[in-house]
Structure formats: C-alpha cells, structure tokens
Amino acid sequence: MKDKSLVSITDFSKEEILRIVELAAEFEANPNQKLLDGKVVSSLFFEPSTRTRLSFETAINRLGGGIIGFTDSSSSSTSKGESLNDTIKMVSNYSDLIVMRHPLEGSARYASEVSDVPVINAGDGANQHPTQTLLDMYSIYKTQGTLDNLNIFLVGDLKYGRTVHSLMMAMSQFNPTFNFISPDSLKMPDEYKLFLDKQGIKYYEHHEFTDIIEEADILYMTRVQRERFSDPIEYEKVKNVYVLRNAMLDNTKDNLRILHPLPRVNEIHTDVDANPKAYYFEQAENGVYARMAIMASILGVK
C-alpha cells in the first residue's frame, strides 16, 4: 500500500486492513519509533476537529516526523478564495504526505487526484472517515483477539452515522452477525441492507434496546443528534430511549466491549464508565497506533 491514498475504507483490501491492525499492535508495544525522521506531513484541517487532529499529530510526533498545516480554514488561504486544487498542489510540493479534513463530500478523492503525494482522508463531510474505521477495527481485534465471526450490535443513529456504515462495510469481510437497534426514523438505509443481503451476511433489526444485547461481542453506540430530526417532538421521544446504563450490562458476555466514536452526550450513562466492558476511551487511544500504522505503511517505512 506504499504511495496509496486512503480516501474510502473500500480502498483497502481485507489483507491491507489486517496488515494495518497487526502493525498498530506493533506500534502500541513500541510507540516511539523515529521512522518518519526527515519526512514532512501536512495536516490540513479545513474545519476544526480536535480529536482527530490531535490523534494524527500525536502519531506523527511519535514517529519523529515534522508537521506543517492549519487547524481551520480561516487561517489558510481558502479564506482568500483559493481553490482546493491550488492549495493541494502547493502543499504537495512541500510535504511527503497530506492528512486532510474538509467539510465538502468528495474533497479527499479530488485532493488525491490533484496531489503528487498520497492523501489520507481525515473526514470529508458526511461521506467517509476511514481512519476511524481502522481504529475501530483495531479496537475490536485487540479486545476480541479476532475480527472473524463476531456478533456486532450497532445502536443509535444508523441512518446518518457514517462511522457505522463504514464499519459495517469493512467488517462484512469477516463473516459477522449484525444487530441494528434504532428508532424507525433513523434505521439502517436499504442500500446497506441490500449490500449485506448480497454478501449473505445475517442481520436483525430492533427498535427496543433491551436484554437482546446479552448476545453481543461488540456494542457500538452512536449519538442520536438533535439536528437530524425535522420534528423536535420526534427527537424528544427517542432521545432517552437509546441510553446505555450499567444495570443493562449485568447478564452480558464477559468478552463484550462497548465502543463509541465520541464525543458522547447522554447515550452512555456515566455509570458505565467504571465497568471494565467500557472501552471508548481506550478506543480513542488506539486511534494513535492505528494512524501510526496507516502513515508508516503509506510512506513505505514499515
């Protein structure tokens, strides 16, 4: 995968995903490797995203690479009306790799066509966020010891949540069973269910967030966002239905781990945080190792 851009999770094959997961484990065991000594990475955040940016910048620092860039578009020449094409052409002359977050969908694919150096998509609007998917997969692998044959529960906003869609597509290569729990207005779109049907993957849809989670290996929680609802009454009805509380975890499997892309609002009660099955903060830390693995692979130093 040397010199290959990572724009969409489907750009990486099953073998490449497994390679990233194994490399992430290596970096976690030995995080300070100066493999990017002498390399410059551009960190272009056309919209602010503190968590993703800090995770990437930590990963670059641990690998000994240099960072140039900006943290929102008001401090870049975009505010002067420069096109994305021109910004990317200029920056690709300065650096060995571009990490980019942009509010417009498809911007990362376009940047990868314009750029002379590989581009890593750190989120393009509501479209793709593949490094989130790879860190989720590393978290699953690390906690379950495998990616194969797992029972994965996805809870909350399954309609607009890009993280659940990408995770579902990528995990589909490892023979999972999916359980979708959401209000009717936010259920998994038909195009994804059609994809699962074609792959022959089992999935079940539920409205109730109850003891069915006793079967789960992974419980992936997402935020139900107020702005997704045109009818505020509809939001009020569902906002407190999909909340995970510690008492609900009593009869769940020992290997169950709870994931969440963060930030959370109220969908995981704080009384869950102390439960050893809560994994969302470690998951965020895993993002650093996953991103080290992705950058080292693309730059061909691992």
Binding site: L84, H102, L104, E105, G106, Y110, A126
Partner: peptide
C-alpha cells in the same frame, strides 16, 4: 451534475 449540494464538484471548478 451531482445533485448533492455539499459535493466538491458543485463547489470547485472541476
């Protein structure tokens, strides 16, 4: 033309 107003193709000359 892409129907998605948030698509890069509707915001950049390309």
């Amino acid at each position: 033309k892409c129907f998605n107003p948030k698509c890069i193709t509707n915001n950049e000359e390309m």
